[in-house]
Write a protein that binds this DNA or RNA. Structure first.
Length: 678
RNA sequence: GGCGAGGUAGCUCAGUCGGUUAGAGCAGUGGAAUCAUAAUCCACGUGUCGGGGGUUCGAAUCCCUCCCUCGCUACCA
């Protein structure tokens, strides 16, 4: 039989923060299990990943910390790479998009599109901040709306009245970065005509679905995009952090990160083969029609992998002799939440991968996550459940079965495999099971039903315990040693099968099991056979999984929601600057909900200078009645703004707690309204 | 408000292109066993399948409507 050739990618994690458990559940662990299974099966499989290191958020983080973007990406690339290693991810290559080979690859694609005259160049005027020497993204420009007079309108769109206009019409524009008035400067960008590919993309998605049964959530998502109609997308930006646009005179322009990041898979593959001295080896995976390409991602990445990336590859294939493969399947997972809520670093909700693995072995985490993957819908990670899975499944069912078998073999059979004697019905049924389970589990993995596969793995261990119980070797050792030997022989074969089928999920424990058996993996297809014969010397038994105590779990639960101490590095202001802010007490006279608004309340307050109206975004935290007669603190000299067409003359002060709940600042009610806060 | 996803056993989740008494794991209760990490095995589920209405011989599954949760997004924390 010919070896299947498979290319697997996992979404490139963004090098702007540490990865957390949710990422692992979405795009990495399922892929790793799939890949390890195929390696065991003997497929010719290549697993590619790396850091995505360009884009605006990274430059913002860098500015905030006062360091270079390179420092940010180096930090998180290394951190995430190490975290993946600790988690026992088996990437063949973990590259990064800042490498020259990636820049070349991305530029080559761009140039090919240019040569094909596919890209559309559109000129437009955009605001340029002379002081900061940069083009300003829309949200960094404010001005007065030419239609309604709203003073905080964006450069080309007013949020207040909803009108769209040309940036040149904006009155009194100012840069949010330097505060200066930006100039309008002409710039041009290239657009990728996604719409031109819509028919072919729909065909591709539908046919792939028919042939390979795409997941329902992925299909629904694609249909949504098709229904709305695909539009041109800008592929370049005015920024200096990223892959330079490879054209003369395009200084200060880079490829938009959505355009180049997906190409990182190709660059990483090139890098892998180059390092092996096989310069063209990557083509064997990307451009050979016998290869299957599977792209594992989280649901947030769906459009990029089912629509944009395929369109880009189609576009390349239209103009070049060497043609790329499109993904055969894009098994996108939903999200993993943490104790019922979304992961949030800033709110101290969740745990980093590397912190977790300081406390517990990778296998325990891998098993727990794998048995509750968000394959159909968002799922939850609970510390209690982690403990239960580790203790009552890994340790008690699997670990204990292995242990009781080895201890028995050592005590009664000189640590050697006893002879397989005459088989009773119960023995042959068990032997049948170790043949059938790997087939069943393998087929589930191949259909991306990893969660079910993991359940079946543990079911084999359950069946093994039952077999041990029912054959009662502790009785037969006294009454019929041959029969007892048969039981232990079968149990040894079971352990060898367990080691193989559990290998993709808990590779470390699987390795230990093989060592204890004093043998190696025989490959998935052979793992259900009797392969350790009478007299085979066994290794030293050891405990596979230790239990997790209640204390350490409660400790972790108690830590939740406590925000880590971060270094305080907000910019300093002078006393003069502070004294410009006029904080005053105020009493709430009236409060009402604003129709059609979820967050806003309309307040009438009494403060210095009389009564005024304030629109406050606290409707989700306070009912109007609760606020009446409260003595609060407001910024009294804030420039008035219009929200939902209502004027807000000031802003109330509130603090946000770790759950994102708002608590307004209140004073003693004996304070007269209008008192100055200092 | 808009868009999307979801509401199934105490908990975490399967099942949903309509079809016999709605499932698994965990937890719980009772029992068996004592080789083993006090680990195993067996038995035990009266769940309004979020509420209501409709289509149908038949609905957890299809349609309508309402309620609730979550995510993204929009509007001053």
């Amino acid at each position: 039989m010919q070896r299947e050739k498979i290319l697997v990618t996992s979404a490139l994690p963004y090098a702007n923060g540490p990865i957390h458990l949710g990422h692992l559940s979405g795009a990495y662990l399922p892929a790793d299990i799939f890949v390890r299974y195929h390696r065991s099966k003997g497929s010719d499989i290549l697993y590619v990943c790396g850091s995505d290191e360009h884009g605006v958020p990274i430059t913002i983080s860098a500015d905030k910390e006062g360091v270079s973007p390179k420092e940010i990406i180096d930090r998180y690339h290394e951190a995430n790479k190490k975290a993946f290693e600790k988690f026992d991810m088996s990437f063949d290559v973990y590259s990064r998009t800042s490498r020259p080979i990636h820049h070349e690859t991305a530029q080559t694609f761009f140039k090919s599109y240019l040569e094909q005259k596919l890209l559309i160049e559109k000129k437009s005027f955009q605001f340029y901040d002379d002081k900061a020497q940069m083009f300003l993204p829309d949200r960094y420009v404010e001005g007065t709306c030419p239609k309604c007079g709203f003073e905080e309108a964006r450069s080309d769109e007013c949020e207040n009245c909803g009108s769209l206009y040309d940036p040149s019409e904006l009155i009194k524009p100012r840069s949010k970065i330097s505060g200066e008035e930006p100039l309008l400067k002409e710039t041009s960008h290239w657009y990728f005509p996604l719409g031109k590919f819509q028919d072919r993309l729909e065909k591709y998605v539908n046919e792939s679905n028919e042939k390979y049964k795409w997941k329902d959530n992925v299909i629904q998502y694609c249909r949504g995009w098709f229904r709305d109609g695909l539009k041109d997308r800008a592929v370049t930006r005015d920024l200096d952090w990223g892959v330079k646009v490879p054209i003369n005179g395009a200084d200060g322009k880079v490829l938009y990160v959505w355009f180049e990041a997906v190409l990182g898979y190709i660059s990483a593959t090139k890098e892998f083969f180059k390092a092996k001295g096989n310069e063209d080896g990557w083509k064997d995976f990307w451009q050979d029609t016998s290869t299957r390409y599977i792209a594992f991602i989280g649901k947030d990445n769906t459009v990029f992998h089912t629509i944009i990336f395929p369109a880009m590859l189609m576009a390349w294939n239209d103009g070049n002799k060497e043609k790329y493969l499109l993904p055969e399947n894009v098994p996108a997972n939903e999200f993993l939440n943490f104790e019922g809520k979304k992961f949030s670093k800033s709110r101290g909700w969740g745990i980093d991968v590397s912190d977790f693995l300081e406390l517990f072995p990778a296998d325990s985490l891998r098993y727990t996550l794998a048995s509750n993957l968000p394959e159909n819908k968002d799922t939850d990670f609970h510390w209690k459940e982690f403990q239960a899975k580790n203790n009552s499944e890994l340790a008690d069912i699997l670990g204990n079965f292995v242990n009781r078998t080895f201890v028995f073999a050592r005590k009664h059979f000189g640590n050697k495999v006893p002879a397989l004697g005459e088989l009773q019905k119960i023995d042959s049924e068990m032997i049948d099971m170790i043949k059938e389970y790997p087939v069943k589990i393998g087929s589930l993995i191949e259909n991306y039903k990893i969660k079910d596969a993991v359940l079946e793995m543990m079911n084999l261990a359950r069946a093994a315990n039952k077999y041990f119980n029912d054959t009662e070797p502790w009785v037969t050792i006294k009454s019929n040693k041959d029969k007892c030997g048969t039981t232990i022989n079968v149990c040894v074969q079971i352990i060898s099968t367990l080691a193989e089928v559990f290998g993709p999920v808990i590779p470390d424990a699987s390795g230990k099991m093989f060592r204890m058996l004093n043998t190696n993996s025989a490959g998935w297809v052979n793992c259900g056979t009797i392969r350790l014969f009478e007299g085979h010397e066994l290794g030293t038994p050891e405990i596979l999984f230790s239990k997790v105590d209640d204390e350490i779990i409660s400790e972790q639960i108690n830590k939740l929601g406590v925000v880590e101490q971060v270094s305080y590095n907000e910019p300093m202001i002078s006393y003069e600057e502070f004294s410009k802010i006029d904080l005053r007490t105020a009493v709430v006279l009236e409060a009402e909900k604003i129709k059609k608004s979820k967050k806003l309340l309309k307040l009438k307050v009494k403060t210095a200078g009389g009564e005024r109206q304030i629109i406050a975004g606290i409707a989700e935290h306070y009912s109007p009645d609760e606020l009446l007669n409260k003595s609060i603190v407001i910024v009294a000299n804030l420039k008035p703004a219009k929200l939902m067409g209502l004027e807000s003359q000031g802003m109330i002060l509130a603090v946000e707690n770790k759950d994102g709940e708002l608590k307004i600042l209140q004073t003693d009610d004996k304070i007269v309204p209008g008192a100055k806060v200092r």
